[in-house]
Design a protein around this nucleic acid. Structure first.
Length: 637
RNA sequence: GCUGGUGUAGCACAGUCGGUAGUGCAGCUGAUUCGUAAUCAGCAGGUCGUGCGUUCGAGUCGCAUCACCAGCUCCA
């Protein structure tokens, strides 16, 4: 007999060799039905694992992260089995679970059409109905290779497994796949599923490799959960900044102007100006100076900076100016360095913090453009910090704190921080510099009580960096803030400062963007607020709705008063019913509506309707104004 | 750039078997003078993304191209 300790701490005895699934049934039929995998002594494994020793056992349901992963992984195997049945010549690559569902990559002569996906779905339903038991087995390497002799990608994977690795397979009916598991006990466990889309994907994510056919899917234990998920996607679509940008007249693209080139409409520009005004104010408060630099620069500059060597594919081709090459800037740094180089700086002048809302142009592959989130011309909220080595750790902490303050001001409380360290091969600067800089970055993150993912070797060749990514409506991460060391350019431009001992020393240079690019930031911000910007950012902050023509004069007077206070106020003078005007103002997501009728004119008051709380009743005009101004001043969310 | 999909009025969409285009909203005009999410009527609006081809005839079929959408790769 063995003793099994359950999650709640209770212990039960079973015959050695008892299957986990049977234990689940012994605990309760409901649990057995809901269980998808088991955690034995902390290790996630199949439900039909037999136990031979005392252990702790935790039964995982779909609700757990591991449970979902197992469920989706099995769904991907079912899909692969269906594809193999329908298209026997297709070769299998890999098919993992992902954050939202699963995919499987196939090497197929033809790509799958939407029609094929329907057929595959039908075949999957059959496989689920067959309720094939899923069995795990292991093989020694030579036998494993023999078994997979017709699957070249699997051969490649087996050959790369460490010598001592256990090579496991999962078999369901006629279908066997190399897989470490775990899996559901049988195919019938998968209930509701849907194949979402087909897409091309390079083998191992490398552009140089063959493009495979990937099919994405999602699965749930209940049909209602699938429906809910699909509904959630629909809801997310409503928050899409591209859709809102059109509806709220914030920005547009024009085919004739060119892809990835943003046209900011008056309403979008109003929001942008508020962002930029705030940004400028805060930079001045934080010890920055503002600089302005040109949009193009001589070829020589980009040669010195190294951009023509390392970043050429991101730059637009040269324009001829009096027989010389000039390039549109993909980055602002060489110009800021040029300002630095215009005179001699002493250690007493450091640190220097120079910021610019610098508009840059970068060539992005056509397939990567995405609304405001990836464009070809954008304005970075750029700054460069030049400091002495001993000032560096302090500067990093400062800039990180500033960064978090900015994100917080815009209501972002969920983001992910990545720390990228020295690349394995190509890099500049000595190891000590890299170590110091990386340490400073890491300590700054820790000092702020935050966590970060380490992207080992993911730094640029010129220095380590911290990136902060924010998620869009569909949960996709977009890099906004970035703090990057640069060991390259100070060297290339031979930047120096005079040290206390009179010698020339090389300053540390740090690139940083807090919002990233105004375009991208505005895009994620729009999705974050679902277009309902807080009062301080709203393109129309107050809309005044007179009921009758006789109220127009008073309404205009209030609008004027608000405009004098730098408030975006509009009056709806149309000959429409009040309900209609309110409906439109609501669709425009305007934070405050002032309804003006006989009563208001008589009492010199306004009836306030807020976007958030509805009808607030009548209010003295000055009382409303001070409430509004306070909300703007505090940038209430 | 690659794989697949989409492109019809300002916006959201319909358009059968190939027979020269419709609906709703918005717009304009008129009527309506009204208190917290849509008053009524009339009018106007389109080289069906663009080009070439097949056909007696193309929004519809084929090819090319541009743009957009999802994903891959890349990145603020």
């Amino acid at each position: 007999m063995i003793e099994v300790t359950l999650k709640d701490g209770s212990k039960k005895s079973y015959q050695s060799g008892t299957n986990v699934y049977d234990i689940a049934k012994d605990i309760s039929q409901g649990l057995a039905r809901a269980a998808v995998a088991a955690e034995i002594n902390g290790k996630v494994t199949d439900l039909n694992t037999s136990l031979y020793e005392d252990c702790t056992l935790n039964l995982l349901t779909f609700d757990s992260e591991e449970g979902k992963a197992t469920y989706w992984h099995t769904a991907s195997h079912i899909m692969a089995q269906a594809v193999k049945r329908l298209f026997p010549n297709v070769k299998l690559a890999i098919g993992p679970s992902i954050e939202n569902g699963f995919y499987y990559d196939f090497d197929s002569e033809k790509s799958f059409t939407p029609d094929d996906l329907t057929k595959i779905e039908a075949e999957m339903k059959k496989i689920i109905k067959e309720d094939l038991p899923i069995e795990r087995f292991t093989l020694p390497r030579d036998e494993a290779l023999k078994l997979m002799e017709n699957e070249p990608y699997k051969i490649e994977l087996i050959n790369e497994l460490p010598v001592d690795a256990e090579i496991s397979f999962y078999k369901q009916g006629e279908f066997t796949d190399l897989c470490s598991g775990p899996h559901l006990p049988s195919t019938g466990k998968v209930k509701a599923f849907k194949l979402i889309q087909q897409a091309g994907a390079y083998w191992r994510g490398d552009e140089k490799n063959k493009m495979l056919q990937r099919i994405y899917g999602i699965a749930f234990p209940k049909a209602s959960q699938l429906e809910e998920y699909l509904k959630m996607l629909e809801e997310a679509e409503k928050r899409d900044h591209r859709k809102l940008g059109k509806e709220l007249e914030l920005f547009s693209f024009d085919e004739e102007v060119g892809p990835g080139l943003v046209l900011w409409h008056p309403k979008g520009a109003r929001v942008r100006m508020r962002i930029e005004d705030f940004w400028r104010q805060e930079h001045i408060k934080n010890g920055y100076d503002i600089v302005y630099t040109p949009h193009i620069g001589r070829g020589k500059l980009w040669e010195t900076s190294g951009h023509l060597g390392f970043y050429k594919e991101g730059m637009y081709s040269a324009m001829d100016v009096d027989g010389q090459d000039f390039y549109a800037k993909p980055m602002n740094c060489p110009f800021h360095i040029a300002i630095y180089k215009s005179r001699l700086y002493s250690y007493r002048d450091l640190p220097l913090r120079w910021a610019e809302l610098g508009t840059v142009y970068r060539y992005e592959k056509s397939g990567t453009l995405h609304g405001l989130l990836r464009v070809r011309g954008f304005t970075q909220d750029d700054a460069h910090l030049f400091c002495a080595p001993e000032q560096m750790p302090d500067e990093i902490r400062r800039v990180l704190r500033f960064c978090l303050y900015m994100l917080d001001a815009f209501g972002f409380d969920k983001y992910k921080i990545y720390l990228s360290t020295k690349p394995k091969e190509k890099y500049v600067g000595d190891d000590q510099m890299w170590a110091d800089a990386t340490k400073a970055l890491k300590e700054a993150v820790i000092a702020e009580g935050l966590e970060c993912d380490i992207d080992e070797g993911g730094g640029a060749f010129y220095g380590p960096k911290i990136d902060i990514k924010i998620k869009d409506a569909l949960n996709r991460e977009w890099q906004c803030s970035t703090i990057q060391f640069d060991f390259n350019e100070p060297e290339r431009f031979d930047m120096t400062y005079v040290a206390p001992d009179g010698t020339r020393k090389r300053p540390y240079m740090i690139h940083r963007a807090l919002l990233g690019s105004i375009e991208r930031f505005f895009g994620v911000l729009t999705e974050h607020y679902a277009g309902a910007f807080p009062v301080w950012l709203a393109p129309v902050q107050v809309k005044i709705l007179p009921i009758l023509e006789s109220h127009h004069e008073y309404a205009n007077k209030i609008a004027e008063k608000l405009q004098q206070l730098d408030v975006y106020a509009e009056v709806d003078l149309r000959n429409e019913k009040i309900g209609y005007k309110i409906r439109e103002a609501r669709l425009e997501k305007i934070p405050y509506m002032l309804i003006i009728g006989d009563k208001e004119v008589e009492n010199q008051s306004v009836s306030v309707r807020s976007r958030k709380d509805g009808d607030l009743g009548a209010m003295n005009v000055d009382a409303f104004i001070s409430k509004l101004m306070e909300e703007i001043r505090t940038r209430a969310n």
